[in-house]
Design a protein around this nucleic acid. Structure first.
Lengths: 111, 111
DNA sequence: AAAGATACATTAGATTCTTAGGTATTGCAA
DNA sequence: TTGCAATACCTAAGAATCTAATGTATCTTT
């Protein structure tokens, strides 16, 4: 795990994007999915994730439904209409930011 | 000016990179250079820049020399040997981060 | 003469994170 | 069967990094 400061400000974008892909996810699942997709390079801490999920819900971008797996509760989150609009803007904002930084720092992303 | 949260954690990288290109720069000059290169999309505030410059100097990545333009002082910063090593690592860290985010968010940066 | 640009700086407060804790259930290996 | 790891939720104190506001002073342009 590297570049912790760089991750600041990207958590909302990550959460919204994953939810727009997967339809619905619960908190723990999000941490595992991010870990898997990034080969353990991005590890979401619960102390960051849960408050963010609660904020996004309070802002009306997400709604929840509880589900019981045996006696254990899962809180599934999914995007609202507002959330669906927001995710597009967030991704766009991030790509714009990267392009600007590319010009500023003069680096390439060869693939 | 957009995406203020995204900028968090990139200020050091920006400063170090510009100094490695330009040899030496003073604070105000850095703000103007960044503004110009990014078409006003990234505006460095002085409240963020000056403390960061002071920290980088305290950490031994930068040194300073004062110069007087008339009665007005300019503090020129330039990289130390340690700073020259750090800038390469910082740029690499940022490009790695972007690549990881690209995989995670599944976006392209067409040019 | 006044306003805007140049040039340095600090501080209060906001935001966003990490670290560290807490509770409880379930599955698996010793 | 017992205890540890994984699953699953959560909060709170403190760190780090920024913005916005403020301050001081000089120089340039209108």
């Amino acid at each position: 795990m590297y570049s912790k400061e760089l991750l600041k400000g990207t958590l909302r974008t990550i959460v919204l994007k994953l939810l727009s892909e997967q339809g619905r996810m619960y908190g723990y699942q999000i941490t595992q999915e991010v870990k898997a997709r990034t080969n353990d390079q991005i590890i979401l801490t619960e102390g960051a994730l849960y408050p963010t999920l609660h904020k996004l819900e309070a802002e009306g971008l997400l709604t929840t439904e509880k589900e019981y797996i045996g006696k254990r509760v899962r809180k599934y989150y999914h995007l609202t209409d507002t959330g669906n609009v927001a995710v597009v803007a967030k991704i766009q904002e991030f790509t714009d930011f990267v392009k600007t930084m590319q010009r500023l720092l003069d680096f390439k992303l060869e693939t």
